[in-house]
Design a protein around this nucleic acid. Sequence first.
DNA 1: CCGCATCCCATGTGATACTG
DNA 2: CAGTATCACATGGGATGCGG
Lengths: 213, 213
Amino acid sequence: MAARDYGQYSGVTRALELVGERWAMLIVRDLLVGPRRYGELASGLHRIPSNILAARLKELQAAGVIRRAPRSRVIVYELTPYGRELEPVVLALGAWGFKALDDPRDEQLVTPESMTMDLRTAFRPLVAAALPATAYAAHLGSSELLIRVDGAALDVSQGEGAADLAFTAGPDILRLISGELAPALALSTGAIRVLDGRRDLLDRFASTFHLAA
Amino acid sequence: MAARDYGQYSGVTRALELVGERWAMLIVRDLLVGPRRYGELASGLHRIPSNILAARLKELQAAGVIRRAPRSRVIVYELTPYGRELEPVVLALGAWGFKALDDPRDEQLVTPESMTMDLRTAFRPLVAAALPATAYAAHLGSSELLIRVDGAALDVSQGEGAADLAFTAGPDILRLISGELAPALALSTGAIRVLDGRRDLLDRFASTFHLAA
DNA sequence: CCGCATCCCATGTGATACTG
DNA sequence: CAGTATCACATGGGATGCGG
């Protein structure tokens, strides 16, 4: 499965030969959140055919971007140090694509991994540093994201935890971040529902995470 | 030609739907150097089939990344303002891929556009600011690149011009930039040949443009 | 069940030829 | 010069199978 060659000797072509195939960059994106098992990758990228996932994992290993690592009886895939250096690429790509998001369609999901990277992309450390430390719990369908902001530091993890504000988050959460949907409107229309905590903290969330279109 | 959908509502997937197809990012890279005609793009990306180039140009227009513009009797393609915002993505991708370059193969070309973007990627403004203003003329096969460094500013253009140092540049020029090939060695082996100017200016070039593997 | 491998078909890609 | 048309082939997508 030789990566198809562009016939040029340059940085961009080399990069695209290594991670330019369909789905490859999304595997990298999800692994930037943390090591993942095969099945976790498959469900996070729910439309990827299993043969393609298997093929990409092999190619990315051969390219030195990811590695298979045994973790107490099970195999996980993780980024190599060189693979982790793709983070600026993924963040830049995410910031650019974020501005081109139109209204979400019904079939479109927000996965914990995509949401985590979108949050990292939209995080404004300078704004956050001026605000009190805050923890948010975002319920995305079946999974929960714990978003802890403390000064200029951001930590996003999956699972339960104490939070100042808990809310349900569908795709519209990204429209909140883009400023296209005001917090008050999101609450009044029910696009976002607060489960626990002070509703006005959603304003703080929206100013902490913002990426204008 | 609907861009195939990843089924996710996120920044990275949206970006990849717009510019993730094969060859698309390379068209963007070349247009970051300046507006180009169809034939110029085709020869800069010499392995692209003409039907694929035509298809990509249409898709990128539909995506709002590029536009057709009439320039005194001829049509050129140029980036839209939104397309120009891909520059950080291309530079990050180039910097990452640059480190994975192995030895050049005979079939691999260095085009003026790829070289221009690689130079922008490897440019070290802080180093350059401490050096005298210098102009380099790099002969790449049939074309010539005029590289002007003045303080922390870099300007790369195609065509002739007065230069402090003129040299021939094959693919090995990138190995010089990566530090894999020392200037003295490049000169003694003939990998790089100085046509005009002080040979020791090649050291200055190598310290101005550097991206370690 | 998880982690893939196989099969088959739709679509995208690549090389070449061709046209306004 | 700036694309379009055609066709063989490689790749992607979806379903299914299967060993550990």
